[in-house]
């Protein structure tokens, strides 16, 4: 589904602030894989997802989605393949537009915007049903501005927007990090439900090791712009937090003491 070969990303190239965020990343994600990604601050997780989404141009390498090389595609063109939810709940929705308008925009992802009416009555009914299934009380507020929602409600809405047109690849970048623990669990459970129902190929970044172990069928650990640990299937299922720490220390040659990763 997603193939990344020798991906290198250097920020501020040729300036004193030059920073190599990704160094020769090799990765191949199969159809229906649910990959969780962990790694310390600045390891390059967000950069990797953003390079896939086309937010930044890359310095070397090759990214292809479903066999199509998207290297030269700009962000808006790649969006037809991708569903995305961001860490910042403000990022995913248009605050001054209503909930149903946001959904209608997302329902046309990858399609040409025509002079047809922006939202049909058939869509409205469908959105109400989907929102009711979230059990967050959003179905009665479809004509409220998205900006009036709480962080958790906005992330749930963004999640629905991301999967309304089934994406080839779902990219989640710490999408529960800004939420309180209870809301985070709820949004995460929803996420997993959507992924299982539609068998979505997913890459999910998290700082919570327990989440990374509980969810998904494959786990990646990043360190200094590289993927240093990659555990799949049965091995992943048997993995414990202690094993992760050991794997990290062996792969990076570093002792894990105060890393934020320990906070799970």
């Amino acid at each position: 589904m997603l193939t990344i070969a020798n991906l290198t990303k250097i920020f501020n190239r040729g300036t004193p602030n030059e920073k190599t965020a990704l160094t020769g990343v090799e990765l191949s994600v199969g159809r229906g894989d649910f990959v969780t990604m962990i790694g310390g601050n600045g390891a390059g997780k967000s950069t990797l997802l953003n390079c896939v989404a086309g937010v930044y141009p890359i310095d070397a390498g090759e990214i292809s989605i479903d066999g199509v090389s998207v290297n030269r595609w700009s962000e808006y063109r790649r969006a037809r393949f991708l569903g995305r939810v961001f860490q910042d709940p403000m990022m995913g929705t248009a605050a001054d537009m209503t909930i149903e308008e946001n959904l209608a925009l997302a329902n046309r992802r990858g399609k040409r915007r025509t002079l047809r009416w922006g939202i049909t009555s058939g869509e409205r009914a469908r959105y109400c049903k989907m929102l009711a299934a979230l059990d967050l009380g959003l179905e009665s507020r479809v004509t409220s501005k998205a900006g009036l929602l709480s962080g958790g409600q906005r992330q749930a809405l963004t999640l629905v927007m991301a999967i309304l047109q089934t994406p080839k690849l779902l990219l989640l970048d710490e999408h529960t990090a800004a939420l309180d623990p209870k809301t985070a669990e709820k949004v995460l459970a929803l996420t997993d439900e959507f992924i299982q129902t539609d068998n979505l190929t997913t890459m999910m970044v998290t700082h919570n090791m327990r989440h990374a172990l509980t969810y998904g069928n494959r786990l990646l650990m990043m360190y200094e712009g590289r993927v240093i640990v990659d555990v799949k299937g049965e091995d992943k299922r048997r993995l414990k937090v202690d094993d992760l720490l050991g794997l990290f220390e062996r792969a990076s040659g570093q002792r894990l003491e105060n890393d934020r990763m320990l906070l799970s």
Binding site: A53, A79, L82, M91, G92, A94, A95, R108, K111, M161
Partner: peptide, 11 residues
């Protein structure tokens, strides 16, 4: 309103 979101929706 939010150009990031609009690009993410393929516009």
């Amino acid at each position: 309103n939010n150009p990031n979101m609009v690009r993410a929706q393929g516009v």
